[in-house]
Computed example of a mutant assay.
Amino acid sequence: MAAENNSKLLDNAIQATLEAIEDGKHQVYEIAESARKEGQALRDELTALQKLVHETISEVDRLEARYRLARKKLADVSRDFDKYTEDAIKQAYDDAHYLQTQVMVTREREQQLRTRRDDLDRRLRNLEQTIARAESLITQLDVAFSYLSGDLQHLGTALKNAEQRQYLGIRVILAQEEERKRVAREIHDGPAQMMANVVLRAEICEKMLDRDVAKVRTELRDLKEMVRASLAEVRQIIFGLRPMALDDLGIVPTLRRYLADFQEKNKIISELKVFGREKRFNSGLEVAIFRSVQEALNNVTKHAKARVATVKLELAEDHILVHIDDDGVGFAVEDAMVSREDGHFGLLGIQERIQLLDGKVEIKSAPKMGTRIMISLPIRE
């Protein structure tokens, strides 16, 4: 009975915590959305202000040129006083004084606009930092919520290996959330922006339809190209999530296509070498190989500064060997695996993924010596 009461108390406490986390997440999300809206308004205002600053600078240059001419004329009048009428002399003094005043006023306005622009730029940077912190906090709250809302029926058994299970669970959830954020960011920065631009330009076409058909035809051609580019980006995002070729054709054709795209996108010479007879393997094994190669090449792109990357597959009857080599800057393996900084979490992810399939991972690298990742996976039906 006491154990049952304790379990209910624990469930109630966790439920209350989940509700608090969910409420906090909504509040943080509202803060982030509000900051995004304010940030967009500031960007629009900053764009308009930068244009105004540029126009004011041009106005100052124009007035200063006129003021220099007026001063020269005033100097001529002063030097040959007897040659000019009283009205001409007065006009020369009035023109010089007026332009001097205009220059001073316009310079002051330019300084005020510059100050306002710098203030807007600082506010915008602060807002972007707030948005980034809010997004990070939302991710952390999502991790906590997902972890706490898991199956608690076998809590006693789970607590036996609490530390290891917690680390593994949080790593999996964090990886999922980071992947969601990456996909959301790619969609927002790519197809979503393009679609917004398509809508805007379509509205322009609609307004111009009765006035300039040739211009509308040109705009429509541009729109068609934008839609094609957006479709290509969407397909690339889908391929990054789960290459359909992996299910249809298998690991070798999928890696060939991925390396070709990788070379074209990153301008790093990439090659796939296959030894042994090509055949299909179980889905889990093929996904583990593909994701490991993908993660390793992501690290090459972000950190290695390499010119060449090579992937070798050795397909034996009872095991698969994968070698991923690059000629980049390299790193101290022991220090990297202990520090677990950004970029080396990818290596940890490869190790965890391969170890789940009873495989082994060996990483060889040194500063200025490039990197080799060696993966060995047993084949089981």
Rank of each mutant, 00 (worst) to 15 (best):
K224G: 06
I237N: 02
S292V: 01
V183S: 05
R221S: 09
I237D: 00
L259Y: 00
D210E: 14
H188Y: 11
S230L: 03
D247Q: 05
A296K: 03
Y258H: 11
L272P: 01
E295L: 14
F239S: 03
R277N: 05
L297H: 06
A304T: 01
N299S: 14
A196G: 15
L223I: 10
M194L: 15
R235M: 09
V183R: 07
V287W: 10
D222Q: 14
E219I: 11
R291G: 04
I268Q: 01
A184T: 08
Q294G: 03
L231K: 09
R256E: 11
L272V: 03
K302P: 08
R228A: 14
M226V: 15
K215I: 04
E286L: 05
M244H: 08
A202P: 04
G276H: 03
R235F: 05
P191R: 06
L231S: 12
L220R: 10
P243R: 03
F262T: 01
H188C: 07
R307D: 12
N266E: 08
I204M: 10
V227I: 12
N197E: 15
F275T: 11
D189K: 13
D212Y: 09
Q193N: 11
N299W: 02
I289S: 00
R257D: 11
A192S: 12
Q236D: 15
I268E: 00
F262M: 06
S283I: 10
K267G: 04
E295W: 08
T218D: 09
V293P: 01
F290Y: 13
K302L: 14
L259P: 00
E225I: 09
I238P: 00
G276P: 11
E264M: 05
I238S: 11
C205G: 08
S292L: 08
E186H: 13
K265T: 13
A306C: 10
M208D: 12
S230G: 10
A245P: 14
